[in-house]
């Protein structure tokens, strides 16, 4: 169903961004999220230092960058899970800077986490129901009077069950969420985020620790979000996935945005290759490179084993010299 829904619209989306110059901070025709001068420092380290960035409505934007580039911190700042030192940002034209995370979520910007947060001792269906916003029964007084919220609860349950079957979790609806596999938890987290009917979904490494078969289905689900008119911003390391589904790619390195553009252009950009694919990349781009990396790691390990007295301060290299 994802293919039918997205294939005709995907080129249109690409067209929307066709005239946007592939430079950092490029203005978009219809930005849903605009951030200016956002900085976040941890002591002497400036984790995030973003001058200007815009995220186009209704497309899938990927946020990539090497480890420590500040992607997750930027995510946390935007969604109110971390406090920025400076900066302002607006979501759908209204400032959400400095707002508590729950208000950001209520505004329609809902996130998931890199480390999946399934609510283990709640059943899958309860996890889903929790996601719905504007529940009357969440007020402590009305909670005591079930007849005030029972109708709403039924419609929430119905929606939850539809989403569960779309994410192929319906057979698990009465299990504890803690009993799900890692991949199923990712699915549950995404489905739960959708229960709040967001306009923008922020996915923090949705593919981390997910097996290849499930990756495909997750990809389909992310494309479905776009087909339904939602905006998706996601952090990812898997370059294949970034290439496959994103309409636009933003590259961060050392807290700054160093490049922007359509996936093909970004991956050919020498700045990006320097900053990300060059010196510190985590995910190998080609199989040959993967082999090369493995060989390097092995030789590094061998070197370390043969010379155990060497200074432990040397950074354990993960293909750092490629």
């Amino acid at each position: 169903m994802s293919a039918d829904a997205t294939s005709p619209s995907a080129p249109i989306r690409a067209q929307v961004l066709a005239d946007v110059p592939p430079v950092p901070g490029a203005p978009k025709p219809d930005p849903i999220l605009v951030a200016d001068n956002v900085t976040r420092r941890f002591g002497g380290l400036t984790a995030v230092d973003v001058e200007h960035v815009e995220v186009q409505r209704g497309v899938i934007t990927a946020l990539i960058g090497p480890n420590g580039a500040g992607k997750t911190t930027f995510f946390n700042v935007l969604t109110g899970f971390d406090q920025a030192d400076t900066g302002s940002w607006t979501f759908e034209g209204a400032s959400v800077a400095g707002k508590p995370s729950y208000k950001v979520a209520q505004a329609g910007m809902v996130r998931t986490f890199q480390l999946t947060k399934a609510l283990s001792r709640l059943r899958v269906l309860e996890n889903m129901r929790l996601g719905a916003t504007g529940q009357r029964g969440e007020s402590v007084w009305r909670a005591l009077l079930p007849f005030l919220w029972r109708d709403q609860e039924e419609s929430i349950t119905e929606r939850a069950e539809q989403l569960l079957s779309r994410f192929k979790l319906d057979h698990m609806r009465d299990e504890f969420a803690g009993a799900l596999s890692g991949g199923q938890r990712k699915l549950l987290e995404m489905a739960r985020a959708l229960m709040s009917e967001p306009t923008m979904v922020m996915l923090d490494e949705p593919m981390a620790g997910v097996n290849p078969a499930l990756t495909q289905s997750l990809l389909g689900h992310v494309k479905d979000l776009r087909a339904e008119g939602m905006t998706v911003l996601f952090v990812e390391h898997d370059m294949d996935m970034v290439h496959d589904i994103s309409d636009w790619v933003i590259v961060m390195a050392q807290g700054k945005i160093v490049a922007e553009g359509p996936p093909e252009a970004v991956m050919a950009n020498p700045d990006v290759i320097d900053a990300y694919l060059g010196a510190h990349h985590d995910a190998p781009v080609t199989e040959a490179e993967e082999q090369q990396q493995l060989a390097e790691i092995e030789s590094d390990i061998e070197a370390e084993l043969s010379a155990p007295d060497e200074s432990p301060a040397t950074e354990p290299s993960t293909g750092g010299s490629s």
Partner: peptide, 28 residues
Amino acid sequence: LLVRSPWGRVLKGIREDEDAVRSLGKNV
């Protein structure tokens, strides 16, 4: 009555992981 209501569900969610509940727009 309280703990089987949506209010109680939010509480149990908080018990499991506050940040997840926050991310769903609940005033934890």
